[in-house]
Design a protein around this nucleic acid. Sequence first.
DNA 1: CCTACCGATCGGTAGG
DNA 2: CCTACCGATCGGTAGG
Lengths: 193, 193
Amino acid sequence: MEILVKKSRKQQIEEKATKLFREKGYAATSMRDLAQVLGIEAASLYSHIKSKEEILQKICFRMADQFFAAWKEVEKEQGSFSAKMEKAAIAHVKVITKDTDASAVFFHEWRHLSEPHLSEFLMMREDYEGRFKTIIRNGIENGEFEKVDEKFMMLTILSSLNWTYNWYKPTGSLRPEEIGKQLANLILNGLKK
Amino acid sequence: MEILVKKSRKQQIEEKATKLFREKGYAATSMRDLAQVLGIEAASLYSHIKSKEEILQKICFRMADQFFAAWKEVEKEQGSFSAKMEKAAIAHVKVITKDTDASAVFFHEWRHLSEPHLSEFLMMREDYEGRFKTIIRNGIENGEFEKVDEKFMMLTILSSLNWTYNWYKPTGSLRPEEIGKQLANLILNGLKK
DNA sequence: CCTACCGATCGGTAGG
DNA sequence: CCTACCGATCGGTAGG
């Protein structure tokens, strides 16, 4: 049973903008494009929002907040570093699959943020990536993981997790939790029998 | 010893454009930006190129050609499917690391291609992805690989290989061949000891 | 949420 | 490779 909540005009604007930013890119999306999708004039958008970039900021920082919020689940895991990595993969994939449009914008369009937002964004990303690196480092020191370059490994793991925004379909057979588990399994155990 | 070859103006334009397209995105890069970097007027660019999109087309299809050319090395491999996958990873990473700017544009800006180039591009990508899927499928049928969804696995593998454009530095300690080997090793055997 | 409009900038052309 | 310029479009504002 689906509950229909009436969306505010502002919410509608942000949703449609997210979709357009994903499809055409932030720079190539005009406020007139956005207005047309909503059936209003471009000038009318400014009754609800301050600027085009404000929309981008909302999308990027809301996604960032969700990644950090999801990490709380990871911190509860007290088992092995493999178990921690699996929890991190699941948490990460869950956030992405909840809104693949916003995720696409988050991953690709952040560079159009102006200062000081750009610097803030990059600092948050560094913080988040550091958490994955810490799991890898601790797992290596512990003897649980192979000796690999932790930055190299972190980037490789995150790239495969991040890529889910590109092919995940809510109508598909794999649930987000299952996708996270399978990706963690690949990362930890590999494709070979 | 480095051999300095005099670059044609057209080559210079394409190189600078590649860098700008990567940094700012295709849509956000103006012909005036590009002209300024070259120290000429925007109108002068059109003595050497037909249009802004022509530059994007050159970048995207040149990269595609290189990925296909590199695949010839993969076809020579007559060993196991693991060996084939390693060869594919090395070939793929070699192409990316040869020009990370062009790779970034190839991965992110292709959607700004107009028809019929866009359709042609997507067909080539599908062909290329199919080759990875075939290795995976054959490896599973052969009993060499775990039973996984081949599309899911192909996308995951390619995402981790593709991501190298983002962090590879020619001055770093890892050579492209070594990066390909390590990524293949992770894909095949995982992080766990 | 609209009409009317702003200055700035866009990709590109004409003609030399 | 330049000057001079085109029509189109941009993000955004004033005033209702």
